[in-house]
């Protein structure tokens, strides 16, 4: 970009969500991304059938965080056999809420002129980490103390970048904000905050082990069922 090393938010590579075998020739691959404060489903539709496909539409089932398409699916021209088209579907989080198992499961229905197809995907929780998720230091300390110990979950992250600055920068690009940093007995401790789209705060302590690619992540949250999904997201961000 010419502006130096500007880190972007982590986006997983696309994977196949609907195989052509199950989609009567329609193959859909996709991933989720957060860009400029908005969530997108980035999709590739491929026609592996022998007939033209048209009249595409998409719908989500109710889900844990109210994810819903913010606009109709824009595939405006018919898709010829062996043709692919990329589409970026903007999402919002004001849809109907229903707790899913796993929490980040999303059931999707796609229709075209041939049939309606259903598939399930899981989304990485960091697409729900909002840009104003940096908690005030005083609030962080009070909240950390206030959340009971039984709501603390501990995880091990392997393949963590070796120095606290790169860890902090990488995470901040995906809206995991470092509130404070301390070094105790040679260990770097990062205190971090995350806010989800539904207003849930997650407090983190990331302890980097000197000379080791492994680090310890402790998460405190009033809704502890989100912790393991936040861990998976943080681990994916740090590995990539």
């Amino acid at each position: 970009t010419g502006t130096g090393a500007v880190l972007g938010a982590y986006v997983a590579p696309k994977s196949v969500w609907l195989h052509a075998m199950k989609g009567k020739g329609l193959e859909i691959s996709g991933t989720f991304a957060r860009r400029s404060g908005a969530v997108f489903m980035d999709l590739v539709f491929t026609n592996r059938a022998l007939q033209v496909m048209s009249d595409f539409a998409i719908q989500f089932n109710r889900n844990s965080f109210g994810l819903a398409p913010a606009a109709p699916l824009q595939i405006l021209t018919p898709l010829a056999p062996n043709q692919s088209t990329e589409v970026s579907l903007p999402l919002n989080t004001v849809g109907s809420v229903m707790k899913m198992d796993p929490l980040n499961n999303l059931q999707v229905a796609v229709k075209n002129n041939i049939d309606v197809f259903y598939f399930s995907v899981v989304y990485p929780l960091h697409i729900l980490f909002v840009e104003d998720g940096k908690m005030e230091r005083q609030m962080f300390l009070a909240t950390w103390k206030d959340i009971p110990n039984e709501n603390e979950a501990q995880f091990q992250i392997r393949e963590c970048p070796p120095n606290p600055d790169s860890v902090s920068n990488k995470l901040q690009a995906s809206n995991v904000f470092t509130v404070a940093r301390r070094t105790v007995d040679g260990q770097d401790m990062l205190y971090q905050s995350i806010k989800l789209t539904n207003g849930i705060w997650v407090l983190a302590e990331l302890r980097l082990q000197p000379g080791s690619p492994s680090s310890a992540l402790s998460l405190k949250c009033r809704a502890p069922e989100v912790s393991s999904f936040v861990f998976q997201a943080v681990e994916a961000i740090l590995k990539n």
Binding site: Q138, L141, W144, A180, R207
Partner: peptide, 20 residues
């Protein structure tokens, strides 16, 4: 001097977590 005591509070938190 804007020391609000928070720097010290974070140091105590980190200490307590490393050497409980």
């Amino acid at each position: 001097e804007l020391d609000d005591g928070l720097d010290e509070a974070f140091s105590r938190l980190a200490e307590s977590r490393t050497n409980p």
